[in-house]
């Protein structure tokens, strides 16, 4: 966990922000997803994935590079958050 450094991102908070974005902008019609839900199983398709990448670009200031688009980084909102925090550290 981060200590003292205010510029450092909190993985919990980022996971919540990504989950909120998915629930309000992408999947508002179904049961809300939780930070540890498998996003593909929840119905997130490739276009919805692009929306998450746009969200990351707008809120965390970088475009997730293609070599990092692997299942381990995008399986859940928490996996996204862990990736975002690593990138921003």
């Amino acid at each position: 966990m981060s200590t003292g450094n205010l510029s450092r991102l909190d993985p919990e908070e980022v996971a919540r922000a990504v989950t909120d974005f998915i629930n309000t902008t992408i999947m508002a019609r179904t049961r809300p997803v939780r930070p540890d839900d498998d996003l593909e199983l929840a119905g997130l398709d490739s276009m919805a994935l692009l929306k998450v990448l746009l969200f990351i670009e707008a809120h965390y200031g970088f475009w997730m590079p293609d070599e990092d688009l692997v299942t381990d980084n995008i399986r859940t909102a928490r996996a996204f958050a862990a990736y975002i925090c690593r990138r921003s550290a």
């Binding site: 309000t24 902008t25 999947m27 508002a28 019609r29 398709d45 276009m47 746009l54």
Partner: peptide
């Protein structure tokens, strides 16, 4: 506006929902 965004996300495929 947040509720408006959710309204659009319920009615439209995700690629059409304004960012």
């Amino acid at each position: 506006l947040d509720a408006l965004r959710s309204h659009c996300a319920r009615a439209l495929s995700s690629y059409k929902v304004p960012l």
